[in-house]
Nucleic acid binder design. Structure first.
Lengths: 192, 192
DNA sequence: GACATTATTGAGCAGGCGCTCAATATATTT
DNA sequence: AAATATATTGAGCGCCTGCTCAATAATGTC
């Protein structure tokens, strides 16, 4: 019954971590059960014993973006600081990889129920994080917004769009320019 | 050598049109050569005689968005009218389907060379269309922008983000609200 | 020790994919 | 009509996918 191995984590958890690693490595589309079991050092049967692939994939995907959200929106920070953290983590090289995963997730969500849930959860988590900053900034009197939720929606959407643009190697935009555009839009919306 | 059939279009063109239809019907991920040949009423061998699947798929995808661009950015319209057409065609039910295709294309572009080219072309076509409107509006004195290209980039990115948000059934936003947000952002950027 | 229970394996299945190629139908040329 | 060239077919190949299941190892119980 005990599932501990020498390194102290269960095979089940090991498989989940391997899935996360594979997703980050090859993306959602190219990730396969065999790649995961190989990475986890585990037989193919064990994965299917613990998980169904669509669920495992969505679970791992969700955990990745939960970690992103925690990085981008740390708790207990004043709105000013939180906003700066938001800008700082917006267009890092890592964010580039995450955005590729995000895009694949969004497109899979149309046909995969588990992914659909995961994407919805992650999206509301991330957009909610930004909305919280704007709202608490209002409360603190840092800025005044007639409709903080609407503003957050527009700025979040702009972020999504800039990230997508940055992903396309065609556009001659780099991360610094993307961040500048994001800051400019914030300036126009909240007058920071 | 003549390729005319009773309806006057070549089998090759017939296959291309069938591919477009299949893409619009089931999306990029689920589209298969067999679905296309069946729709075109043609043997599987013929498709492979005329095309390689990745190329055909990218070609059809590109034609879809070329049509979208022509719809969204008609030629010879004054900037004011063009902008109104842009708003009007932005979040129609059709645009919803197109956006799904767009998302799938963007995620495929990472691993598919043909799709990468098609996506880059379509993106520059669409963003260029918006930039043209803003620039010619400047020339006509309808509005004054210090950096029309940058403004177009932000507004285009915002549009992308809003469309993605609209695709997610989780967000309680509808097409009318999305258009309202888009208009509001235009108002803030160009003071229309 | 013997037994029962759980954890784990991996060869193999069923299904789907793009694509080939020998065979056939159709068209063109002489 | 015969010969040549082109257009088209579809059964089938090789590959990859998620997943099953009888067999095996490991562990717990008495």
């Amino acid at each position: 019954m005990s599932a501990g191995t020498q390194d102290g984590i269960s095979r089940q958890e090991r498989i989940l971590q391997a899935t996360i690693a594979v997703l980050l490595d090859v993306g959602l589309r190219a990730a396969t059960t065999r790649a995961v079991t190989e990475k986890a050092g585990v037989g193919t049967g064990l994965l299917n014993h613990y998980f169904r692939w669509p669920d495992l994939r969505a679970l791992a995907w969700g955990q990745i973006f939960e970690a992103v959200a925690q990085d981008q929106f740390p708790t207990d920070a004043d709105p000013q600081m939180a906003l700066e953290q938001y800008f700082a983590t917006s267009f890092t090289p890592d964010a580039h990889r995450f955005w590729h995963l995000w895009t694949e997730g969004a497109s899979l969500a149309a046909s995969d129920v588990a992914m659909k849930d995961a994407v919805e959860t992650a999206r509301s988590r991330l957009h909610g994080g930004l909305a919280n900053i704007l709202v608490s900034g209002c409360s603190a009197g840092l800025w005044h917004l007639p409709d903080p939720q609407g503003t957050a929606l527009r700025l979040g959407a702009l972020y999504d769009g800039l990230a997508g643009l940055l992903l396309s190697s065609a556009s001659d935009m780099n991360a610094a320019q993307a961040e500048a555009h994001l800051r400019k839009a914030f300036h126009q919306e909240i007058g920071l």
